[in-house]
C-alpha cells in the first residue's frame, strides 16, 4: 500500500533525508524511530505531499506523491506533528469542515463525525473552542480529523505525545483495532509503544535508514532491550559512543 523509493530532501546545506526506501503492506503498523532531527517528520511530510522530495518518490495506494498528490491525499489520513488545527473553531465545526473538503455530506457527514468522536473520545468537548482544549484533547481532535474519511493509509506523527497514560492506552487500542484494515506509519520516541503496537520498525538517523526489522527480531539479533539497542545504533553513527 505504501511504497517509498529513494527519497532525498535537503534544506540548504542540511541533508534531512538521504535515500530512504521502504514499503508497508496492508495490516502492518510501522514504527518510525529516530533521534530528533533524524528525518522522521520530513519523510512523513513528503509521504503526505506537504513537501516535495528533491528526488525519489513514493506511492500510496498506487498514486504517486509527485504526479498525483490529490489522489494520495484522498486516500490518506495524516496527523502532523503537534496536531495543528483551527483554534477558533470547535471540534464539531472543524470536523464538519474536513468532511466538506473530503466531499462527505449530509447524513454521511453526521455519522462520520459521531463515529470518530466516539472512537477518539472527544464527544464531550465537541462544542468547546479548540484553542481552549488541553494538549491531549487537541491531539485527539487531530486524530479524529485523520480518521474521519476512513482512509486506507494512516500516517501519524507522534500520535500519543502529550496524552496521559490512560489516553495513550486508548489511542494504542484504537490503532490496534484499525490495523488489520489499513497500512499505518507512526513516528514515536516511546520505545514501549513500538513494542506494544508495531509489527515492524525502522530506525532512522541523519536521514538514513539504519534498521528495518521487527521488534522481536531486533531484540534477538542485538541482545538487549529496545532502549539500549536504539541508543547503541543511533549514537555510534553520530560518532558518540556511549
Amino acid at each position: 500500500m505504501i511504497n517509498v523509493y529513494d527519497l532525498h530532501k535537503s534544506f540548504g546545506s542540511i541533508i534531512a533525508v538521504d535515500g530512504v526506501s521502504f514499503s508497508v503492506k496492508k495490516g502492518e503498523v510501522l514504527g518510525f524511530l529516530g533521534p530528533n532531527g533524524a528525518g522522521k517528520s520530513t519523510t512523513m511530510k513528503m509521504l503526505s505531499c506537504f513537501l516535495e522530495p528533491d528526488s525519489g518518490y513514493a506511492t500510496i495506494n498506487n498514486c504517486s506523491t509527485v504526479t498525483d498528490s490529490i489522489g494520495v491525499r484522498k486516500n490518506l489520513g495524516y496527523l502532523a506533528e503537534n496536531a495543528p488545527s483551527y483554534e477558533e473553531m470547535n471540534p464539531y465545526n472543524f470536523l464538519k469542515f474536513i468532511c466538506n473538503i473530503r466531499n462527505i455530506k449530509g447524513t454521511a457527514c453526521k455519522n462520520a463525525i459521531e463515529k470518530v468522536a466516539h472512537e477518539c473520545a472527544i464527544s464531550n468537548i465537541m462544542y468547546q473552542q479548540i484553542g481552549t482544549l488541553s494538549k491531549g484533547y487537541k491531539r485527539r481532535v487531530g486524530l479524529a480529523q485523520a480518521l474521519i474519511h476512513n482512509p486506507d493509509v494512516l500516517i501519524l506523527d507522534e500520535p500519543t505525545d502529550g496524552l496521559d497514560p490512560n489516553q495513550k492506552f486508548e489511542v494504542r487500542q484504537l490503532i490496534k483495532k484499525l490495523a488489520p484494515q489499513k497500512a499505518i506509519i507512526i513516528s514515536t520516541h516511546i520505545l514501549e509503544e513500538v513494542d506494544s503496537l508495531c509489527s515492524r520498525l525502522i530506525i532512522i538517523a541523519n536521514g538514513k535508514i539504519l534498521v528495518d526489522s521487527t521488534p522481536n527480531q531486533l531484540r534477538k539479533q542485538e541482545q538487549g532491550n529496545l532502549d539500549e539497542i536504539f541508543r547503541k545504533i543511533t549514537t555510534t553513527l553520530q560518532g558518540v559512543n556511549v
Binding site: K45, S48, F50, R73, A80, P84, E87, I98, R102
Partner: peptide, 14 residues
Amino acid sequence: KSKSIELLFTLPIT
C-alpha cells in the same frame, strides 16, 4: 504561524 498550513495542504485541495 499555527502550522495549520500543514493540515490544509495535506487535505485533497490544490
